[in-house]
Nucleic acid binder design. Structure first.
Ligand SMILES: [Mn+2]
Ligand SMILES: [Mn+2]
Ligand SMILES: [Mn+2]
Ligand SMILES: [Mn+2]
Lengths: 167, 167
DNA sequence: TAGACAAGTTAGCCTTGTCTAACTTTTGAT
DNA sequence: ATCAAAAGTTAGACAAGGCTAACTTGTCTA
């Protein structure tokens, strides 16, 4: 069969599979995908605890738009992974680790949402898109989003000011 | 048990499950998630066909960073869904529908990437993030991204020009 | 024109995430 | 204090997406 001679030479990697730059991106995205649900859950659990004092499976199910058994199974996994603790028939608590993750997720969520709004998007669409995008935003991108959102109100003013000054 | 009286009254929906606005977002995101892989595959297949004249499973596997059996199984699904056609031991072709989807995906991918770059992100990170974000961008958001990317080079100039003119 | 080796397939395993159906526990109203 | 309804759990089905191992097919090269 044809040798792939139309491809740049790839350095031998410590890993088994050769990784071209494209594959790196895909592998990274798949990794992010595996954490999405956990992130949404802990974020939601933190919100529920804050808003109602406790996070009950029934409320998680409602907010997530899934059935109770689905929530139960997912919570079992989160407990296995050390993000939450729970006892039978009782509501759910975040571990230290879970709280940390929740905080980080809430932070990212907020920045992405503010960014989309500052771009001129309507609230409903912004919330929808933020809910998906937040899991695929690197730290660098997040920083740029934050800067843009923060600056967007004064941007016009500042730029104009600078233009006038530099005139 | 407590009635959820702390929640806005929800109109009775034609659907079974009550959907608060939060759930709508999560449900939407999950729907988008189910198409991610198909989108990446058809986009990649189109690229391979364009670049090499054919899309072979081995190249798909390399670019996606997965093993050959994984590709085989996914291709079977795509064929079942009418996005590609294939014959045993032969390379893969896009159906009309597949081509349409590929085109749409490439379009979105391109806009998201240009947008991230115009925001000041480095190419490598932009490509990584775009690969994930592209699947969670609504038409509205995409339009804003495109406008921003298109305008970003002339923006400064234009704004300053306007500022000067309106002075 | 053989064969060796690359590419492709098949079978089977695992985990995640979703569901329905049926059972158990908790709890609020009477 | 009772007990019905709400909440929670358990069991089991199913599809997707990943893997390894082992087999089959195609093709380049000697
Ligand atoms: Mn989310
Ligand atoms: Mn979120
Ligand atoms: Mn992608
Ligand atoms: Mn893409």
């Amino acid at each position: 069969m044809k040798k792939n001679d139309n491809q740049e030479v790839e350095a031998v990697m410590p890993d088994e599979r050769a990784v071209d730059s494209r594959a790196e991106a895909f592998v990274g995205v798949r990794a992010a995908r595996r954490n999405e649900l956990a992130e949404d859950y802990v974020e939601l659990i933190a919100e529920l605890i804050y808003a109602k004092g406790e996070a009950r499976p029934v409320d998680i199910a409602t907010k997530m738009g899934v059935t109770a058994p689905t929530v139960a199974k997912t919570l079992d996994r989160l407990a296995r992974e050390g993000l939450i603790t729970r006892a039978k028939y009782r509501s759910v608590f975040l571990t230290e680790e879970g709280r940390a993750l929740a905080k980080e997720c809430r932070h990212r969520h907020e920045i992405v949402l503010r960014f989309l709004l500052s771009l001129g998007l309507d609230l409903e669409t912004a919330e929808r898109d933020a809910e998906g995008i937040e899991h695929h935003v690197s730290d660098r991108t997040l920083a740029l989003f934050a800067a843009f959102a923060d600056g967007s109100r004064v941007d016009r003013r500042n730029l104009m000011g600078e233009a006038l000054r530099s005139n």
